[in-house]
């Protein structure tokens, strides 16, 4: 999934980029309105995070331009002023959500996931991924969730990619490079430490006993494996 982030503050832009990438999104970044429009037209991102106050063409205008051509691509506004958001909503420019500064990582993730779910459920572009079971876990990638009985576990996009890959390769060892290639993308330099940390975090959430994982098992020296079965 590709996200266009248009934000004039370099740090916020970089931070959002990192958060999104860590979640498993591909990001396109623009530092001003013109660049944002250009990237939108060239790359057709899946959704857009749009800062309102930007030099040159501001967020409202970009939103208006995009909506003229495309009514569906979700747009999340980022703004320091709730009044500005009022206008976006009030003017019915077609924004899907907004994030008020200052925002925490969790809030951003929550909004992004919500939009992602909407993308999947509205069935655009990518087909809604199929649900599957891993051991006692029901994985619903389209919902970015997993369920174990009554318990709901939020998953990142990357989590669903990893789990989907391991499920597809049930019973086989998936080496680190493969996981990296599949779930991080080619642009990322394969870093086993990053991967191991992510798997470790994931296990904490989905394994009943993270110290003795049943779903994602470590195959020392090779990679990871889901044993499949049920």
């Amino acid at each position: 999934m590709r996200v266009l982030v248009a934000e004039d503050d370099a740090n916020i832009r970089a931070g959002l980029e990192e958060v999104l990438e860590r979640e498993g999104y591909e990001t396109l970044t623009a530092a001003d309105g013109a660049e944002a429009l250009e990237l939108y037209r060239r790359e057709s991102p899946d959704f857009i995070c749009l800062d309102i106050m930007m030099p040159g063409i501001d967020g409202y205008q970009i939103c208006r331009e995009i909506r003229r051509e495309d009514l569906t691509t979700p747009i999340i506004f980022i703004s320091a002023k709730s009044e500005e958001v009022d206008r976006v909503v009030g003017l019915e420019l077609g924004a899907d959500d907004f994030i008020l500064k200052p925002f925490g990582v969790n809030e951003v993730l929550a909004r992004i996931r919500a939009v992602t779910r909407r993308c999947y459920n509205q069935g655009r572009r990518e087909q809604r991924p199929e649900d599957f079971h891993m051991a006692d876990l029901d994985i619903v990638p389209a919902e970015l969730r997993a369920k174990r009985g009554e318990q709901t576990i939020d998953l990142s996009l990357r989590d669903t990619k990893i789990l989907t890959l391991l499920y597809r390769m049930s019973g086989r060892v998936v080496d680190r490079n493969s996981i990296f290639r599949e779930c991080w993308g080619l642009a990322h330099y394969a870093n086993s430490r990053t991967l191991d940390q992510h798997i470790s975090q994931l296990r904490k959430r989905i394994e009943l006993d993270p110290k003795n994982p049943q779903i994602i098992r470590t195959v020392h020296g090779a990679g990871y494996r889901y044993d499949g079965g049920g």
Partner: peptide, 17 residues
């Protein structure tokens, strides 16, 4: 207050990261 928000966003976001 609004101007404070951008640096605050960065502080918070990067602290969390």
């Amino acid at each position: 207050s609004h101007e404070l928000k951008t640096p605050l966003t960065n502080i918070r976001m990067y602290a969390e990261l």
